[in-house]
Design a protein around this nucleic acid. Structure first.
Lengths: 196, 196
DNA sequence: ACTTGCGATATATAATTCTGTATCAAGGAT
DNA sequence: ATCCTTGATACAGAATTATATATCGCAAGT
């Protein structure tokens, strides 16, 4: 998948997860197969414009063409509209996202051997999971995790892993300077291994 | 082309024409071939999401996912931003659009024989060309013309032509009741045949 | 332990996109 | 009349999407 579309695709996935809709259910609504949706969301395939529109309309989202200089304004409009219950769902799927990322990193270490970068990524992901992240921060994290996932089949995996590690650390540092980390609600502390 | 994407594609074409950019020039900017762009714009092909993003970014437009209920608000934002010189360009390409539509309708009558619907479409298009149309009205006209163009290769051509004729007449009636028609500036009266 | 649902992946196949290149009719400028 | 540019169309071939179906490892619930 090219960089052009991956942000839109990531947003579509976030919206689906935020709505608590599975790929199978979305497929039924959109007239697409679950495997098709999985390949689109995971970056294994570039969808056609119509397929993507089908997907996103089934999530009550509309693709719009916006003049580039109006993009920040539109983003502001969209952000102001996000509902609280959507945040709750989003937080839940965020935690699942972190859990899956930790599992994926373990698997990568197992398959390709450990490395300083992977260790750093693993530790930073564990830290970020406990911190309350803003939407922008969470979006960045998700994009980095998605890139890590796709890097496995990439030739420049090492370089990409390095870049992801640096970005995650930069984010962590900015958070550390913004506010001291506050633990998540107790019900989410039980998730995953966080003994360290 | 499916109905899902045709509105977006029509908007991209309008933007390109409004900017006075040819398909060849756009192709160079976007990394696509002129024939590819022509097939996309004319509805002969469903583009991939990335190809479409390439196209539209080269026109300083960004594809955004917007919650359905925010679409009117975003449309309002976009409309408020349109610059006067863009309107002038748009008016110019509108007139060219009308001219092309009139030629196409003549060709259709020649190829498939005349019909009451085609006659009505031809006459209504000639009328609408002289009237100052609002953006929404002009958008509707363009979509209808595009549908007419595509209907030629369609099995339900007659039904589509009928539907287009009715829509154009409905638009004309709403305009007639809104304001008495005012002729266009003299410099555009010379275009095309409007003796009838 | 078992069941269910999840997302990811595999396979085969048909359909379509995408690219490169060429050509054409039409319109505008000279 | 000629030249140039335009958008549309054609063709061949490579690459990719899209569909159908199945299967898998994993997580959660019972």
């Amino acid at each position: 998948m090219s960089y052009q579309s991956e942000s839109l695709i990531a947003q579509a996935r976030e919206a689906r997860e935020a709505l608590g809709v599975s790929q199978r259910v979305l497929g039924e609504r959109a007239g697409l197969t679950q495997s098709h949706i999985s390949q689109i969301e995971s970056g294994k395939m570039e969808p056609g414009l119509s397929s993507f529109i089908d997907m996103t309309r089934a999530l009550d989202l509309e693709l719009m063409l916006v003049p580039k200089k109006l993009v920040p304004g539109v983003l502001g409009l969209v952000k102001a509209q996000a509902t609280p219950d959507m945040h709750i769902h989003a937080a839940q799927s965020n935690d699942k996202r972190f859990a899956r990322a930790e599992r994926m990193i373990k698997k990568m270490k197992h398959l390709y051997g450990s490395s300083a970068d992977l260790d750093r990524i693993e530790e930073t992901v564990r830290f970020l999971r406990r911190v309350n992240l803003g939407d922008q921060e969470m979006r960045l994290v998700r994009e980095l995790i998605a890139r890590l996932e796709r890097s496995q089949a990439s030739e420049q995996a090492a370089a990409v892993v390095r870049d992801i590690a640096q970005n995650l650390r930069r984010l962590r540092n900015s958070i550390t300077h913004r506010v001291s980390p506050e633990p998540r609600p107790a019900y989410s502390l039980d998730d995953g291994d966080d003994d360290a």
